[in-house]
Design a protein around this nucleic acid. Structure first.
Lengths: 232, 232
DNA sequence: CGAATAGTGTCTTTTAGACAATATGTT
DNA sequence: AACATATTGTCTAAAAGACACTATTCG
């Protein structure tokens, strides 16, 4: 064992960036510019820049380079994906991250050299859309993580802008969970968890009817009581 | 970018192996035999054996080599820990795994060259016990994962032997959550989740009182309704 | 005013938790 | 029998969900 040397691997960072557009949960995909899978759709990501780069830093860097999202969206580690033979360039270990982007005006977050598109996660999960590598699995894990965290954490506010109405927050839950919720019960439910959301003063969002009160994300991340998705 | 080459890192696998002994949640620790942190307590683990080794396979190998646990305990990926400067031997990325060992007769799972001990997680989390590297943080994450999963999954059965009584299952919940539960409500609660546990036929465990019925793990992993730990 | 959405009140059903009562074994 | 633990039953309080109703804006 004394002349044995531990093998070295390539370390990549991949991003599952989710947002809600319209009433559907969407994920940001890019077109690969190099082999393998050149031309195929894939998650934004890339190799560690240098051997001293911190993993969260690499994730933030890719978030900005490939998605143009510089303004601190929610970002958390998701998992490690590293089957041998996954990439012909050698043994690659990918550290996937989950990022949540707030509702953007409309335009797709284009970037860099490659192009980027928001695509409905349903199209990815159902297989209607082919992804490079094992990226479909990674998306599935990211979506499942988001669904679970909506129950117990304040993650939903990361999908919204700085201020938002309760109806907008409900749209997030409905898009991520793929379920309809009663607006009246939802209204009281979100306010029952102390510190989840706090009023932002005046009123706005003059939609078709009565303008809705505005809220912003509260101080606590852990929801108690939790938001429960009924057992389908 | 054409003459740029992606950096390579060392890949390690670390194990948070939890069990319940007596009424406390315990974690398996080994004494490090080499620098850095020689002589200090640490999680079992090690480098990938060769560049083609699968990560789950490496985790199972360490589980057997360092803990003597060959018989398929529950094993799941926990997270990635790879700050630069964490290890003087170079850039090391550690993929931590969570393993659950069933209640063992009594003897400590000794092994290999190094020695191993079960230690109460409370001693690790409180800092009474010093651990090498960032292993205290990894233990904390593993314990938190276990606590959370006990609510929504059948993970608790992994702490038990092949068959178990409901009182034994309750001891698992109490040790992991660090809380007291009402045996009568617990009894109905665990049976209310379809597929969580199934009867194993006859009776046994003739303790001091009436012998308890035996159960084994049921087919479903997802608990519905969940076991809830009251909001402390 | 009428349409449309925001926000409140109330009732019913379900669930969580406390705890009495009964069952079945050991000594 | 006395004791200890297992298992069942029952009551009460809290929460989830359905849904009628009121409020406020726009056209």
């Amino acid at each position: 064992m004394s002349d044995w040397e531990a093998p070295r691997v390539l370390l990549a960072v991949d991003l599952v960036i989710l947002t809600v557009r319209g009433s559907s949960l969407q994920v940001l995909l890019v077109e690969r510019g190099v082999e393998p899978f050149e031309g195929a759709l894939a998650l934004p990501g890339g190799f560690l820049r240098d051997v001293e780069e911190d993993i969260p830093a690499a994730a933030r860097r890719e978030l900005e380079e490939e998605a143009g999202l510089a303004d601190e969206p929610h970002l958390e580690p998701l998992g490690v994906y590293g089957e041998p033979g996954r990439d012909p360039r050698g043994r690659v270990i990918s550290v996937a991250h989950l990022a949540i982007a707030p509702r953007l005006p409309e335009p797709v977050a284009g970037t860099d050299a490659a192009q980027a598109w928001w695509k409905p996660v349903d199209d990815v999960l159902s297989g209607r859309l082919e992804l490079a590598f094992d990226h479909r699995r990674i998306v599935a894990d990211g979506v499942e993580r988001a669904r679970a965290k909506l129950e117990h954490s304040a993650l939903a506010t990361a999908f919204c802008g700085d201020t938002f109405t309760i109806a907008e927050l409900q749209q997030v839950y409905e898009a991520v969970w793929g379920a309809q919720l009663d607006p009246r019960n939802f209204y009281r439910k979100v306010q029952a968890a102390p510190g989840f959301i706090v009023p932002a003063g005046d009123e706005r969002r003059p939609g078709n009817g009565r303008p809705a009160r505005l809220f912003r994300a509260g101080p606590t991340d852990s929801l108690n009581p939790p938001m429960v998705r009924s057992a389908q």
